[in-house]
Simulated scan of single mutants.
Amino acid sequence: MAAIHRPAHLTHHAAKVASAACIEKSKAISVPMNIAIVDASLYLLHFERMPGAKLTSIDISMNKAFTAAGHRAPTSVYKENVWPGGAAFGLSNSNNGRFMYVAGGIPIVVDGECVGAIGCSTGTPAQDTEVAQAGIDAVMEYVRKRKQGQPKL
Rank of each mutant, 00 (worst) to 15 (best):
F99Q: 00
H46V: 04
A103P: 01
A68G: 09
H13D: 15
A36W: 06
E80Q: 14
A8W: 06
R72N: 05
L91V: 13
A3C: 05
S30V: 07
E24D: 13
I29D: 08
G70M: 11
L55K: 11
A2H: 10
V115K: 00
H13S: 11
P7F: 04
I106C: 00
I118L: 10
V115I: 15
H46E: 13
Q133A: 14
S92C: 12
F66Q: 09
P7R: 10
S19M: 15
L42W: 02
L44V: 03
V102N: 08
G105Q: 06
G90R: 14
N81L: 14
A40T: 03
P32T: 12
S26L: 04
C120M: 06
M1H: 11
Q150G: 11
I23D: 01
A3E: 10
R6E: 06
G70F: 08
A14L: 09
H12F: 15
R98P: 03
N96P: 05
D137K: 12
I4D: 06
P84Q: 02
V139Y: 15
G135T: 01
T67K: 02
N81Y: 10
I4W: 10
L91W: 10
M1P: 12
A132V: 04
A20M: 10
V31D: 01
G135I: 00
A87R: 12
F47H: 05
Q127Y: 04
I108P: 00
P51Q: 13
M140A: 02
R144N: 12
G90C: 13
I118S: 14
C120A: 05
K64F: 04
M50I: 03
V31T: 11
R144D: 09
G105W: 04
L55F: 13
L91N: 09
A53D: 03
R72C: 03
H13N: 13
D137L: 08
V110A: 02
E113D: 07
P7V: 03
K27W: 10
H9F: 12
F99W: 00
W83K: 15
T129W: 04
G119M: 05
I37H: 03
I60W: 00
A3I: 05
A134M: 05
I60L: 07
Q133K: 12
G85K: 14
G105H: 07
S61W: 02
M1G: 15
L55A: 12
M33R: 01
I58M: 11
P107K: 05
T124C: 09
D39M: 00
K64W: 08
A28I: 03
A53Y: 04
Y43K: 12
Q133W: 14
A3Y: 06
A138S: 01
T11M: 04
K64V: 07
G52N: 04
H9Q: 14
Q148I: 02
A65G: 08
A21I: 05
V143P: 00
G90M: 09
K145F: 03
T75W: 03
S61L: 02
G86S: 06
A134V: 05
Q150F: 15
I29H: 09
M62L: 12
H13G: 13
A18L: 05
H9A: 11
G104Q: 02
A117P: 01
I108E: 00
P125C: 08
R144F: 10
K147M: 06
